[in-house]
Design a protein around this nucleic acid. Sequence first.
RNA 1: GGAGAGGUGGCUGAGUGGUUGAAAGCGGCUCCCUGCUAAGGAGUUACAGGUGGCAACACCUGUCGAGGGUUCGAAUCCCUCCCUCUCCGCCA
Length: 426
Amino acid sequence: MLDQRLVRNQPDTVAALLRRRGMEVDLSGLQTIASRQRDLEEHRSGLQAEGNRTGRAVAALIRTGARPDSDAVTALREQGNAIKRQVAQLEQEEHQLDAALRQQLLAYPNLPAPECPEGASEADNVEIRRWGEPRRDEAFKQHWELAETLGLFETERSVRIARSRFITLVGDGARLERALISFMLDLHCGRGYREVLPPVLVNSASLTGSGQLPKFAEESFRCSDDDLWLSPTAEVPLTSLHRGELIASEALPLRYAAYSPCFRREAGSYGRDTRGLIRLHQFNKVELYWFCHPDSSGQAHQQITADAEAVLQALELPYRVIELCTADLGFSAARTYDLEVWLAGAGTYREISSCSNCNDFQARRSAIRVKEGKRNRLLHTLNGSGLAVGRTMAAILEHYQQPDGSVAIPTVLQPYMGCEQLRSCC
RNA sequence: GGAGAGGUGGCUGAGUGGUUGAAAGCGGCUCCCUGCUAAGGAGUUACAGGUGGCAACACCUGUCGAGGGUUCGAAUCCCUCCCUCUCCGCCA
């Protein structure tokens, strides 16, 4: 959520920053509401002060022996009633303004960081670095072809169970998925992250706190009887893990690694990535999440990205790091690095992780602050996939495929798999 | 799901209509004292919004689970909701 003080005092600055994201907005209406709300609050609290004085005057009179039904007391009571009526009227208007203000503020995305490269579309994203050597061979198969030979998942039968864009992993496929999850969690926990296994159903307040609501309701599956939603990413429960809290600065940074299944409607992606593990309504992900001091989130962003890269490096999968330009930033992010893994079969780099600094955007929505001496400040939050598990499996299958149709298991995964390669079993 | 109990500051826990934003204790912080340690003494210690000030800070309003209501005045009375605990039932 944007800082309403910033909107009130410097609407032009805010509008200019939103313009960098490609949004043409007129904030004058919002500013008017914010200013009126403040004026109203000032007026109302002054009246309430007067009412409080009236109440104290009654108490003083009664204490000094005046009868409760005496003229002096009656007069004060009427005065109190008159004030109360005025306050009630002002409060009603103020509540309406509060609600309108919050509703509008919640709909605006985060402001891009100054370092975020300007751009008009994803074509303007900037490649930062590459790691590893992509394997290129026209004969390479795509991961779903390999998976079919190896018997790793069921496609048609998954439609029977749920519907399209759901997958059922079986045999070595199921085992490989589980191995990847364990491996990623072990790696991150060894590097200082605390493991979390969060609820998969989350309430509306949690989705609002991390930025999915109110704008992106159509992207999530909803259990409408209960004000619960299937979480689209562990970022949602992790943000709300500390929602409403005031945290001692010595406790920061808090770093969490959470495995969770993720559920997304993928509205508007009909026909894209219809085969394989790339785009599903349900997928597994290990998510990294930081609550950090507002002065150190820039550094933290480099670190969380490096932590996600560590997974790809350990698996020896070639990838590149892309910095998203202002036009391609997610709603809550001020700055984002995407990791794109090389898919040898598809012959292309595909997003496998997104590491974002959300600065105080989610912290303001979720009221998460740090206590620093006498002062309280909103802290900063960062999130990064470490990694999307299904896409990691796809990359492994394509990168480690052998001419004989088998797939080698990366060395670090072998203890988790109990084998060195996947072969057609049946 | 049924029956009961309860939600007060960082924590424990008083408080049933009038300077109670809240006793007391613990914890934290500052200072003093004592070779060190232990112990002791004094003070201080909630959050949000707003106004003024360069600032330290001062002042106003709100907040005792949330939202309504009664009253000149509510932590305290009434209503609704949420949550926690205990017992029973059900269940992996």
